[in-house]
């Protein structure tokens, strides 16, 4: 047994050296595996406000968790038929590739390299984020271009740090980075006057500001440094499964557009005359056939987690578990309100 471990270890090194990303090409489709197993394995990260979080009773909640639940509802008809795995940033992509999880729903920014080189298929973004700066209101700074020579607190090891350096170079700002491993310490340093500004994703910073002793003393500058379309992802090579997850996300957005909510979904199914609603909820048509799901898959999704607007309100907006980011006028508004949340027609 000892020897075996060694051989495995040496072989592991060899594969790593060769740079080969092994993708398990299982004979069975993911849908079949999931149905046989009886639950969906969904991968999130270690808790991150708004996206995936533990409450004090040990339940997961958040935007990305809702996507997991929606997929479980679509495939198995029940949001609780779900095993949420929390995987570290370092092993997130391997865990998906080697079949430990069926779905990665953990604020991964969709980029060309990741989409093409990691054996992943990205799904439609469920949140558009962007990097920005937080400053003290009394500092008199109203634009990021005024941050000349400033000390900026940033968490290390992420694209955030690189974006900051790029931005500083492009605009000749001569910003000095003060780096931290943990954003809690970063914020504490900023609050104690250790730096003039904090940089990070605007969504998470909005949440953090709300937890500062006096939130009204701080503000986020208007500039956005980067594009961060956050999306879930599935293993490459199983198009059927990718379709299911993709259209589950679209169903959330489409439901909001059609005015279907968790509360009125039963009523809509029984009394609506809108053919779009009837088709989506499985009363008419056969949307489910191509996906290989039950007729009422979208009904189960909305019944289980609500539509995108409701989810946003609960976890990103002003709900009791929300981090309080306004939706109006942002990229995350529905396309009819000038945002980017747009579902192709479901017919």
């Amino acid at each position: 047994m000892k020897l075996k471990t060694h051989i495995a270890g040496v072989a592991a090194l060899a594969v790593m050296a060769a740079g080969g990303a092994t993708v398990a090409a299982s004979a069975q489709s993911t849908l079949e595996t999931v149905k046989e197993r009886g639950h969906v394995r969904c991968q999130v990260g270690s808790p991150s406000p708004g996206y995936y979080n533990l409450d004090s009773d040990g339940n997961w909640y958040g935007l990305d968790v809702s996507v997991c639940k929606a997929v479980a509802a679509a495939v198995l008809g029940d949001v609780s038929k779900l095993e949420i795995q929390s995987v570290s940033t370092q092993s997130r992509f391997t865990a998906l590739a080697n079949g430990e999880s069926d779905l990665l729903s953990r604020t991964a920014t969709m980029t060309l390299t990741r989409d093409t080189q990691l054996g992943l298929d990205f799904m439609p973004p469920n949140f558009y984020d962007g990097q920005g700066f937080t400053v003290r209101k009394d500092s008199g700074i109203t634009s990021a271009l005024q941050l000349k020579g400033a000390k900026v607190c940033v968490t290390t090891g992420t694209t955030t740090e690189l974006n900051l350096t790029d931005y500083s170079r492009k605009n000749d700002l001569n910003i000095s980075n003060v780096t931290f491993e943990d954003w809690n310490v970063r914020d504490d340093t900023y609050l104690n006057g250790g730096c003039d500004a904090v940089t990070g994703d605007k969504s998470s910073m909005a949440g953090n500001i709300s937890s500062f002793p006096i939130p009204a003393d701080h503000m986020i500058l208007p500039e956005t440094l980067s594009k961060e379309p956050l999306a879930s992802a599935v293993r490459q090579g199983d198009d059927g499964w990718a379709n299911i997850v993709r259209w589950t996300v679209y169903a959330l957005i489409n439901a909001e557009e059609l005015g279907i909510t968790q509360a009125n979904v039963d009523e809509m199914r029984d009394t609506s005359t809108d053919p779009n609603v009837l088709r989506m909820l499985g009363v008419e048509g056969n949307l489910n056939v191509g996906l290989g799901l039950d007729k009422d898959w979208a009904y189960n999704v909305i019944k289980g987690v609500g539509n995108y607007g409701e989810i946003y309100e609960a976890y990103m907006g002003s709900g009791p578990q929300g981090i309080g980011i306004d939706r109006e006028g942002t990229l995350n508004a529905l396309w009819t309100n000038g945002g980017l949340m747009y579902s192709p027609p479901m017919r």
């Binding site: 406000p49 979080n53 533990l54 004090s56 949440g207």
Partner: peptide, 26 residues
């Protein structure tokens, strides 16, 4: 083991600062 994503005591303690009611409490 908290680094590889098992919710041992350390990761649990750190997760408190992520829970929305206790955001930043670390």
């Amino acid at each position: 083991v908290s680094i590889i994503g098992l919710f041992d005591i350390l990761l649990m303690l750190r997760s408190i600062s992520r829970d929305v009611p206790w955001l930043g409490l670390h």
